[in-house]
Design a protein around this nucleic acid. Structure first.
Length: 628
RNA sequence: GCCACCUUAGCUCAGUUGGCCAGAGCAGGGGUUUUGUAAACCUCAGGUCGUCAGUUCGAAUCUGACAGGUGGCUCCA
């Protein structure tokens, strides 16, 4: 029998298994599986004639996934030894580790995690062999019947009769898996159970509630430590923590999911809002404002009440039933409907910093990132179907340049198509989806398609960005709507004098301004760029002798429109520097007798760099340059 | 909304198997100090231990309900 290894034909014994062949030809110790003719195989598999064999190590993505998958099995092995009555559900690999869903009568607490983890460690240290066995579907069902694992049987029932079913024997524990898996537990050197969570059978909240245990696993201790350290780093950047430390905003229980903005946070919020407003003015948007509360009949007509009624806050008044607006679009159509519109008026762009309220389930709330009242940088473009492609092209480029201004260059763009719950005919959806696709393609944009993820009224393009920690945030959205204008009686007169229904494009660039502030805080770890810093310069005197000069400099800077403050308190300079560096003020100016005499300033930045002594004019030039 | 966990001074946290007036650091007030590049010193004040109910001679500590929060799940127009 012959196989190809390293581009060389090699003679091997009949009945040889992959492990034997690989061990003979490769020195690496962390080989966990094999790639045979471009498919992953267990090392215990037999060698097939004329195949091309490559080793897979824990340094490979596939090898690491195999290690993590086996780690999930070891978790199963351990928990069944400790709690034999637990039912195993599924245990897939995820980013950085794995999880296992189980059904347990008793809650699994953090103490249990320690106990289970210790048992896993003990099992891994035994360096036992993991045995793969290929079985028929009936055999597999009987195995899991004996083991009293109803969920495994349910999963088996869904598997095609012809598919190969493998079970893996971990001493007395048996799990089912497509594989491949480690052949020995000796490769499991670094793993940790992280947390528990609730989950549902098949991810459906109507189904049986299960317990999910998350774990992480790595080829060695160092890479695990690096991962755990990166989690700590992310925690330090948490916008909720920094929001408190930097005095930006707070939440309190009388208004769950709604922000109390403090002056510094509100300054950042308004700087972002002003920036977007300038963009709107430059691009012929009309900036409007519509009521917070509208009669429920309007929401009924728009279709929102039927689809999203649970998330709408109700308000009663006398005999009328109102709803607090969860979106601005119906309001914008009311403005459009005032006065007769001609095709010459199109495209007509209405923008609003609309404050919307959505009664999100309590469990979903998360700082500024998921709240119940937020401000959208929302706009609706009324246009003809011929104008769609051009308008979408403009938007795509606007969105990209705005993200870049805030320091985000790594974008991800997705096209979402028709969902199950939707309004409008199939023809309308076909047309809508194809115009979005054309706009993306003509701009040579890389995008992925997200089938079934569109809004109920039309398909959409979503813009996500990656922050400095590599996390992805969905922000902007462009949504085509061929339904709502008609439902709410919007129309224009075309060039032939006929009444036509306009197309509406919903678009948001930053999405929720509140959420965007949260993302910015985490991206910059609180060190906002100079143009967004609530306080840009802090002036510090050394002793009382310089207070007057310090105050007059402060007034001078404020007069130029800079956000500066001074700290004349009776404290040592080191103390003042520390305090203001911790609140992330970009520039500190230190003024002592030397500076007073020579009419100069001594400049320091928040990172601790001493920028030396300079004239006030030089300093002003320096920061003006940085602001833009 | 679902599962688990958390809630002690403005903030960050101690508080031993239930036991006299609940502790610390920082922040805050008062004083001393007039200070040169990331925390000067002294002193004072701060809390119905998330809320309500229960067990107990006695509850921050044990039990239950509720509220808010945290991590996920579901959801996210």
């Amino acid at each position: 029998m012959k196989v190809t290894i390293n581009n060389k034909k090699i003679e091997v014994d009949e009945n040889a298994i992959l492990e034997d062949v690989i061990k003979k030809h490769f020195k690496e110790k962390n080989i966990v599986a094999a790639n045979v003719d471009d498919s992953l195989r267990d090392l215990s598999d037999s060698v097939t004639n004329n195949s091309i064999i490559e080793p897979i190590t824990t340094d490979d993505k596939d090898g690491l996934d195999i290690l993590r998958h086996t780690c999930a099995h070891i978790f199963g092995h351990a928990i069944k030894q400790i709690y034999p009555e637990v039912k195993m559900v599924i245990g897939p690999v995820i980013e950085n580790g794995f999880y296992y869903d189980i059904l347990s009568k008793n809650p699994i607490t953090e103490k249990d995690l320690i106990i289970i983890e210790n048992r896993m460690r003990k099992l891994a240290k035994k360096n036992y062999s993991i045995k793969r066995e290929v079985v028929s579907k009936d055999k597999a069902i009987s195995i899991f019947k004996d083991r009293k694992e109803p969920y495994k049987i349910e999963l088996l029932k869904e598997i095609n009769d012809k598919e190969i079913i493998a079970v893996y024997h971990h001493e007395e524990y048996v799990d089912m898996c497509r594989g491949p898996h480690l052949t020995n537990t000796k490769h499991l050197k670094a793993f940790k159970l992280m947390k528990t969570s609730g989950s549902y059978w098949k991810g459906n909240s109507e189904n049986q509630a299960l317990t999910r245990i998350y774990g992480t696993a790595w080829p060695d201790r160092d890479s695990q430590d690096a991962y755990l350290k990166s989690l700590d780093e992310a925690e330090k950047r948490d916008h909720r923590l920094l929001g408190k430390k930097l005095d930006l905003f707070h939440f309190q229980e009388e208004s769950p999911g709604m922000v109390f903005w403090h002056d510094k946070g509100w300054t950042v919020f308004n700087l972002i809002k002003d920036f977007i407003t300038r963009h709107l003015r430059k691009n012929s948007y009309k900036i409007i404002n519509t009521p917070q509360i509208l009669d429920k009949s309007l929401w009924k007509k728009s279709g929102h009440l039927d689809k999203f009624g649970d998330l709408i806050f109700d308000v009663g008044s006398e005999k009328k039933e109102f709803a607090i607006k969860p979106m601005s679009c119906p309001g914008h159509i009311q403005v459009f409907n005032q006065g007769l519109k001609s095709y010459k008026d199109l495209p007509l762009k209405y923008a609003e910093f609309g404050v919307v309220h959505r009664n999100e389930p309590s469990g979903t709330l998360h700082g500024l990132l998921r709240i119940r009242a937020f401000t959208q940088d929302d706009a609706h473009i009324f246009c003809t179907s011929d104008q769609i492609e051009h308008e979408i092209s403009l938007l795509i480029n606007d969105i990209k340049s705005i993200y870049e201004r805030f320091g985000f260059n790594d974008l991800k763009i997705e096209l979402s198509t028709r969902p199950e719950k939707r309004v409008g005919s199939e023809e309308i959806w076909d047309k809508a989806e194809s115009s979005l696709k054309k706009a993306l393609e003509s701009n040579k944009i890389d995008f992925t398609v997200n089938p079934g993820d569109g809004a109920f009224y039309g398909p959409k393009i979503d813009f996500s960005l990656r922050d400095s920690l590599g996390r992805v945030w969905q922000l902007g959205t462009i949504q085509l709507d061929f339904s709502m204008p008609g439902r709410l009686d919007a129309s224009y007169i075309d060039s032939d004098g006929n009444k036509e229904v306009p197309v509406m494009i919903h678009r948001a660039i930053l999405g929720s301004l509140e959420r965007f502030v949260g993302i910015l805080i985490e991206h910059y770890s609180g060190n906002l760029p100079l143009w967004l810093s609530p306080v840009q310069v802090i002036l510090l005197n050394i002793t009382d002798t310089q207070s007057e000069y310090t105050s007059s400099l402060n007034e001078q800077l404020q007069g130029l429109g800079l956000r500066s403050e001074c700290d004349l308190s009776n404290e040592k300079i080191g103390y003042k520097i520390r305090n203001h560096a911790m609140t992330r003020v970009p520039y500190m100016i230190i003024i002592g007798d030397k500076e007073l005499q020579s009419k100069t300033v001594s400049v320091r930045d928040r990172a601790g760099n001493d920028l030396g002594t300079m004239n006030t004019e030089e300093f002003i030039e320096l920061i003006k340059k940085e602001i833009y």
